[in-house]
Amino acid sequence: MDANDELVDLIARCTLRDQHSLKLLYDKVGGYLNAVIFKILKSDELSNEVLQEAFIQIWENASTYRPHKAKALTWMTSIARYRALDRLSVEKRHAKYLQENDEENDVLESAEGSHTDTPDFSLYASQLNHQIEQCLSKLSEKVQQSVKLAYLEGFSREEIAEKHNTNTNTVKSWLRRGSERLKTCLEGKIEMNR
């Protein structure tokens, strides 16, 4: 059984209200999801709160997970990220943090916490990483950074604009054109790998 199958199995057992499986799931991916959330919220207190919410949602929505559509870790990461983004919209701390740390903190380079690998990061994950990095490298440096700041750090269009000394319409246009080119490139790679 590979790492994904193991996570799928645990999620399936959560649908049967098996708390022991939820605990195993938490032990396997809690640290990873917390790191994902922390990168967006920049606060241990908030990321722990959001991690709790994410696990409750995983527990409650386990029956809606479709293994043939998404890897288990992708599904759980999406839940965690969307909860973190929801929290961002009601918290002002993110903006405050950015103001206070703008000079000393290059968010793309920061790597908080320990660096133990999560269990799933197999050939599939490194292939995905290779694929997207290759496709991103075909975009301008500013667009690459914008995509990473948004996805990994939870930056809004306004915050990206501020970072690049430009306006939000320009950022919107970068993201639109960037996503179109990125998709064309990724689809080509997916086709090649079939």
């Binding site: 640290g31 870790l73 992708t74 790597a111 916490g113 995905l128 990483n129 290779h130 996805y151």
Partner: peptide, 12 residues
């Protein structure tokens, strides 16, 4: 976009 995740752990 999951390909961008670095897979570090931060223990809660």
């Amino acid at each position: 976009l999951m390909g961008l995740q670095t897979h570090n752990m931060r223990m809660p």
